[in-house]
Design a protein around this nucleic acid. Structure first.
Length: 380
RNA sequence: GCGUCGGUAGGUAAGUGGUUAAAACGGCCUGGCUGUAGACCAGGUGCCUUCGGGCUUCGGGGGUUCGAAUCCCUCCCGGCGCA
């Protein structure tokens, strides 16, 4: 069954060292959770994903519903059996796709803005390819135009068939461009959907996390944390949406939510986690967090190292025979040069993407281990 | 040697008498990417510029025409066919 144990609460910050127990093993926290949207870390097989130190993965309800469909995954023994991964798994509810395929696509933005921008999504606005109603969300696939509907009940039903250890309530991830009125209305919906998600649950074998929203509107976010935090059936919580357009605001926003939520339950920060965010997330009370950065960037030739990013597409790396990160102990850094991997990537060789993904994931997982050590040592 | 098809940006090429030559793809360059719209996206890519614009280019040369990358002649180069 599910349990969360706090081994040590930092006296310096909100950081805590912990262990999440699931039917598929334990997660030492704070932990980085790689994103396996379609039940795969692209370019790696499950053995390699474990090799680089991944403790758990997060897959996606929307994508697996579209293909191959939850029934097929269920027949294969759930995501665990289907992808041959025997460690803990989470599934995101599809709430992020409400944004990414909706306003995110329409406005060509991600959920985190770089600069403060004028709020341009007003209360009555609807995205082009997504229709958000009180009951749920109608998606229109940009690929074949097919309609797909997700509601709390449907999302939870799918997630139960997919069989992850931790599932998420269906929410609306609002655009960072939403004005306050939009956000208020969206929040009410997300809160109601949180209750409906709990009601839709037919088994407690899987833990369910409720998602706090509110965007960069401090009062709304704190209010959301209060409401979601008092829904006792949630075994943990997700921090959704954006927290502001810079690191200071993000840290403040995360901390304020942590302070409201019940301290004994785990907190997952959804979709934030560049290397420079790790300490900030932990210090703000985050226990787990996922981010596409290591895998997504790897395929585009961007390598994360202890000294920052390298863009291996740049031709200067063809004459650089050092390892990706001289301080890294992963198999890639032991055996291959920047030049080699750069040349593979520049020529679109799949192996280049694979080696980059392997290293990046190792680097992210290792960085989380360093964070745990720092909490243990009383440094964070 | 004869015949034939071709020669346009660093590549593959579209354009076959009349807007401003250069579509499209690829290459290259520069950016971007945080609960994955993907192995993606955006911009740039003849020269000069005082950022107003100016100049040069369709293998070379000549011609026809008001006007030629486009038609004609000739030379050069390449593919293919026949000797």
């Amino acid at each position: 069954m599910f349990a969360f144990t706090i081994l040590k609460q930092s006296r310096k910050s909100r950081a805590r060292l912990g262990v999440i127990k699931t039917p598929h093993g334990e997660i030492e926290t704070p932990a980085f959770i790689p994103v396996a949207t379609r039940a795969t870390i692209r370019t790696l097989d499950s053995r390699e994903v474990a090799e680089v130190g991944s403790q758990a993965l997060i897959a996606n309800t929307y994508h697996l519903h579209l293909a191959p469909g939850e029934k097929i995954v269920q027949k294969a023994g759930g995501i665990h059996g289907y992808m041959h991964w025997d460690k803990p798994l989470m599934t995101d509810s599809g709430g992020f796709q409400v944004f990414s395929l909706g306003f995110g696509k329409d406005h060509g933005i991600g959920k985190i803005l770089k600069e403060k921008q004028e709020k341009s999504v007003t209360a009555d606005a609807q995205p082009v390819s997504v229709k958000i109603t009180e009951e749920g969300v109608h998606f229109r696939s940009p690929i074949d135009g097919k309609q797909h509907f997700l509601s709390p009940k449907i999302s939870v039903g799918i997630q139960e068939k997919l069989g992850a250890d931790i599932i998420f309530a269906f929410d609306e991830c609002p655009s960072p461009l939403s004005n306050e009125e939009y956000m208020r209305i969206s929040l009410e919906k997300t809160h109601r959907w949180a209750r409906e998600s709990l009601e839709a649950r037919r088994s407690k074998l899987q833990a369910m996390f409720g998602i706090v929203q509110g965007g960069a509107f401090r009062k709304l976010r704190i209010e959301s944390a209060k409401i979601i935090g008092t829904m006792e059936e949630f075994e943990g919580f997700g921090f959704g949406g954006e927290f502001g357009y810079n690191k200071v605001q993000t840290k403040k926003g995360l901390s304020e939510v942590s302070d409201v939520l019940p301290p004994e339950k785990p907190r997952h920060v959804l979709g934030i986690g560049h290397p420079e965010d790790f300490a900030l997330i932990a210090a703000s009370g985050g226990d787990t967090f996922d981010c596409i950065a290591p895998t997504h960037y790897a395929r585009r030739g961007v390598i994360f190292t202890s000294k920052g990013r390298l863009d291996l597409r740049k031709p200067r790396f063809l004459n650089d025979f050092k390892p990706l990160d001289p301080a890294c102990r992963c198999d890639i850094c032991k055996n291959y040069s920047r030049s080699y991997i750069s040349n593979l990537l520049r020529n679109h060789e799949l192996t280049g993407m694979k080696l980059a993904t392997y290293h990046n994931l190792y680097f992210f997982n290792h960085l989380a281990a360093v964070i745990r050590k720092r909490i243990k040592n009383g440094e964070l």
